[in-house]
Amino acid sequence: MLELPRAMVDQILAHARRDHPDEACGIIAGKDGVATRVIEMDNAERSPTFYRFDSQQQLRVWRSMDDADEEPFVIYHSHTATEAHPSRTDINLASEPGAHYLLVSTRSPEEEVRSFRIVEGQVTEEPVRVL
């Protein structure tokens, strides 16, 4: 199960709506399994069907997490025309086995937020509890 404060979920949804129709992406840093801060990342692809963290920004953010003893707790991105479920591309490219993969969809005005573990190509959905 993934537990997140309402304010963080709202920030991610606002980010996704703002970047729509392009995919939005970012992370929630965490410490000892607890979310600490949302970091909105630039989608270097600026695409409605693909995302990739800007590489220089990623290095800065990863280093700041290292310095703060944080880890990439949640990796989030939006799908803008399809459901909030990992695509084949998402599964093939998942590179943080310890992270929760949070997907949101902006295909309709309804809130669609789901979380998954992706480990060695295996996808397992988990409940999201918003506190």
């Binding site: 995919e23 992406c25 992370i27 990342m41 692809e45 695409s47 409605p48 069907t49 693909f50 995302y51 990739r52 963290f53 590489s55 990623q58 290095l59 990863w62 990439p72 990796i75 991105h77 799908h79 803008t80 025309a81 399809t82 990992p86 695509s87 084949r88 591309t89 998402d90 490219l93 998942a94 590179s95 943080e96």
Partner: peptide
Amino acid sequence: VTVLPAVAGGSL
């Protein structure tokens, strides 16, 4: 030298 996996994906 630092190695990082790119964080990437997409809806297709």
